[in-house]
Design a binder for these strands. Structure first.
Lengths: 329, 329
DNA sequence: CTGTTAGCGCTTTCAC
DNA sequence: GTGAAAGCGCTAACAG
């Protein structure tokens, strides 16, 4: 593999000259540049990015760490992150934290391979994040709070969103309401459950714990949880699914058993993923400002990189989206 | 920022000893390892990944380059890639080629930052790929053929898939059939159009070029192309959308104008993205083996990395998925 | 403009 | 086991 040294030799110039030429430094004459470029082409030279990063100590790259890159939920978030990153002439790489604290993602957290990171991955431990964030390595976390001045928190108001959705259910006459939950280690899930519980409490509606089933935030989990509920023979009036994916899984389970939504059971979801608008019936849900969250996260990273003071935490609000999966009073 | 040197000093050992201890080399006594680890913890040491990669000349990482990370189409592909990569203990990073040959992606292609790459991005030039692939940097390209022995091609049979879908339209009595195309530089689009044309030819049906409109593979593009067609006042019997996203955009355009699918116009798509099953009416389309393509691509990369001989090209077949967007005869 | 040179932080011989 | 020392390939300060 050809190095810059080989290029310099072939072009008959000094090492530094070759480096300057290759990097477009003005000190070099056009003819020299041409010579160097030609030599590089002939040798099929490819620069070793690590070596130059090592020298520069800056990578111009930020990492986006997601618990599952292939989830539909992340699309819009990525878009927000991507656009702002590009507009700052930075590079973006995404990686999955599949495998938790033993995943690829940790390589980016533990070893200084990027200038900053945005994390939305419940399977990365808070401890790891706290250990990693530092002045020259700012982190924005999207799903929890972290005790480290260089780990900023951009959160959406899960609690209020869940409260609104639950209230909507109550106002439409539903009294026994179940909750299909996400993973127990998910802070988002916890907050949503709190909002849900708050609403129930405020309206003095008792919550029956047998109507709380875990669905793990996946479509399949929602499907299975719903099946289980159906098997219990005694369905609640309404179901709050902690995310849309699970609600869509639930929709399928109901449809297979001939149970009609919303005539027999009303359901609401959370997130407002793209599909939700298209399922039958269209899903009433709580919209998260995913694009905005992504954009704000990167923006914050850049501010911190520039040494500016930023708030420790940002709050984004949700929006209730009424469609047709809740029976009107 | 603490370096390994600082750690060694604090632990009172030599630089190399610290390195060995940190990397779990057996030469070091347990007590020494403990000492070093303690010092590292105290200094909040984080290793510089670049420096070690530079030394090792291997990154254990492969890159997945996509024209748009946020597209729904890529989800399953990513899943396939991800799982196989992880099973080989390799890391995976994804990056977008938004910006074409000037994007982040090129950094990974031009500078040796990863051990191999998988590309599905029509906006990356064939030339760049040809220049980049080499023995120690294998590339798998998913959407075109490339003249370089180290750039392998995993392709799905777009042509045959499109042929089948078109045939289905013809067999159900449709005679004037339009084609909503993807970007002109997309090889996939080209192949699909060929399959489409082949079918028309075989059944001796003329193709009217005014019924070929570009929709750029995006939902919005499909929407606009369809609007344009509607404005022309003279709709064809059926429309072949070169991908599902555009077809879904088209569905919306038709619905806004009160044109019924499939009663007034029949449509077929291509890809079989998740949404296609849920739209109204469910979209008849051609399913691509996305997961398999991703898995095969990584698998091939690993074979090449291991120095094994591999075929220059692999073919995966498509599957026709009949749903309800085509009027039966 | 060009060439010499000193590292960036780490791994890894090789001698002790 | 341990420590000194030689670079990996590149950039950039410095002196011509």
């Amino acid at each position: 593999m050809a190095t810059i040294k080989d290029v310099a030799k072939r072009a008959g110039v000094a090492l530094s000259t070759a480096s300057y030429a290759l990097n477009g430094n003005q000190k070099v004459s056009a003819s020299t540049i041409e010579k160097v470029l030609k030599a590089a082409r002939e040798l099929n030279y490819q620069k070793n990015g690590f070596a130059s990063d090592l020298k520069r100590t800056k990578t111009n790259t930020i990492a986006l760490i997601l618990s599952d890159m292939s989830g539909p939920y992340f699309s819009e978030l990525i878009k927000g992150v991507q656009e702002v990153t590009a507009s700052h002439q930075y590079d973006l790489i995404a990686c999955s934290s599949l495998g938790g604290d033993r995943s690829t993602a940790t390589k980016f957290l533990r070893e200084k391979r990027v200038d900053g990171a945005i994390i939305l991955a419940n399977n990365i431990s808070t401890q790891l994040i706290e250990e990693s964030a530092r002045e020259d390595f700012p982190i924005v976390v999207l799903d929890r709070e972290v005790q480290n001045p260089f780990a900023i928190h951009v959160k959406v108001d899960n609690r209020h969103g869940a409260y609104q959705a639950t209230e909507h259910l109550i106002e439409n006459g539903h009294r026994t309401i179940g909750y299909i939950s996400g993973p127990h280690d998910s802070h988002d899930n916890e907050e949503r459950f709190k909002g849900f519980s708050d609403a129930l409490k405020d309206y003095e509606i008792p919550f029956q714990s047998r109507f709380k089933i875990s669905g793990n935030f996946t479509r399949d989990g929602g499907y299975r949880a719903t099946k289980m509920l159906i098997a219990q023979q005694q369905l609640p009036d309404a179901l709050f699914y902690a995310n849309d994916e699970m609600a869509i899984g639930g929709l399928q389970a109901f449809s297979e058993k001939g149970i009609s939504i919303p005539d027999d059971v009303s359901i609401v979801g959370f997130d407002d993923i793209q599909l939700s608008e298209y399922v039958n019936p269209p899903l009433t849900t709580v919209k998260q400002p995913k694009y905005e969250a992504g954009a704000l996260a990167v923006h914050t990273i850049f501010q911190m990189l520039a040494g500016e003071q930023v708030d420790q935490s940002f709050d984004l609000s949700t929006e209730f989206v009424k469609r047709s999966s809740v029976r009107s009073k």
